[in-house]
């Protein structure tokens, strides 16, 4: 690894098939809103990408509170895809992201294949959206979503429905709540996915031992944060082996640059930060700086060289 002369800075841009990111650090769906809330901390145009909060065909009020529980080094959430629905998304949210210069991924969720197809079609004409992130992995809604992410054939069908209805590249967000993540990756690749994002939250649960009631009103929720990172790194590594050439964005518990480098070494082309934003609002900028310094120190000229560079 000697692609870098001493005075050069490493190249940070990443190509994910048709989608170009200016750097490998993105922010995860549901953990960054629509791009504006962290403006007072840094310019969101410095991000490699923003995965928008999930949008569904109709407006959804979300689950009843309590929606969050902190667990050891983790966060259990059962938000229930609260969002304004596709019509208001197009009218109100799309104009609001106009001024931010980064790659936007629209995260979409639906109860059936027609819903996914409709959302993919409606988003095709939005120039500001670089790609779709197909959410077949939300554990917090009664039907749809996770059901599509639970077996390879349903995942392939959902992917195909979106791919066939949209001009945009479709990235599929995989659920970790499966026995064989490699098989899921292959299935969505067959369905025409332009890339994969992984992982979504791990299904979890917490009980208040005094009241003997579940801590979340929804009973179960999705676990995120540092607690899930080793699982996420392992899954990214398995996905990379299963689909060696498919663009892959890794996430799950990233808080620092070291965490991010692990994902890149395991085979991710870029990474996304979710819960880490809540803990440290500057996490994406700190991680980006750390990746750049690491690459310079270890002689990596590009992020592509670093992806999958785990030894052994």
């Amino acid at each position: 690894m000697n692609g870098l002369s001493t005075c050069e800075r490493p190249a940070l841009a990443v190509s994910l098939g048709p989608v170009r990111l200016k750097n490998p650090v993105a922010v995860a769906s549901g953990c960054y809103g629509y791009g504006g809330n962290y403006r007072e901390f840094y310019d969101p145009s410095r991000l490699g990408g923003i995965f928008l909060k999930c949008v569904t065909p109709a407006e959804r009020p979300g689950n009843a509170p309590q929606r969050l529980v902190e667990t050891p080094s983790g966060l259990l959430n059962a938000i229930g895809l609260q969002n304004v629905g596709i019509e208001r998304f197009l009218r109100e949210i799309v104009p609001a992201i106009e001024g931010i210069d980064t790659a936007f991924f629209a995260n979409i969720g639906a109860d059936d294949l027609d819903g996914y197809a409709m959302l993919a079609r409606r988003l095709s004409d939005v120039p500001k959206i670089a790609a779709i992130e197909l959410n077949i992995s939300c554990p917090n809604v009664k039907k749809g979503c996770l059901a599509f992410g639970a077996d390879p054939e349903s995942a392939r069908q959902a992917t195909q429905a979106a791919v066939q209805s949209s001009r945009l590249p479709v990235f599929v967000k995989l659920s970790p709540n499966v026995a064989n993540i490699g098989e899921m990756a292959q299935a969505v690749a067959e369905g025409g996915a332009a890339g994969i994002t992984a992982i979504n939250t791990l299904l979890g649960m917490a009980i208040d031992v005094e009241t003997r009631r579940p801590k979340l009103a929804n009973v179960t929720g999705g676990l995120s944060g540092p607690a899930i990172r080793p699982v996420a790194v392992r899954m990214v590594w398995e996905i990379r082996k299963a689909v060696p050439d498919l663009p892959l964005i890794g996430m799950g518990g990233i808080l620092t640059w070291r965490d991010a480098i692990e994902f890149l070494l395991a085979g991710a082309n870029a990474i996304a930060i979710g819960t880490g934003n809540f803990v440290n609002p500057m996490a994406p900028m700190d991680v980006l700086q750390g990746i750049e310094d690491y690459m310079a120190q270890h002689g990596f000229a590009s992020v592509a060289e670093l992806s999958g560079a785990m030894e052994g």
């Binding site: 960054y32 809330n37 962290y38």
Partner: peptide, 14 residues
């Protein structure tokens, strides 16, 4: 209420 982000993005504190 229990908070996640504290800045309005996670919708956890409703």
């Amino acid at each position: 209420n229990q908070m996640g982000c504290g800045v309005g993005v996670c919708l956890g504190c409703v």
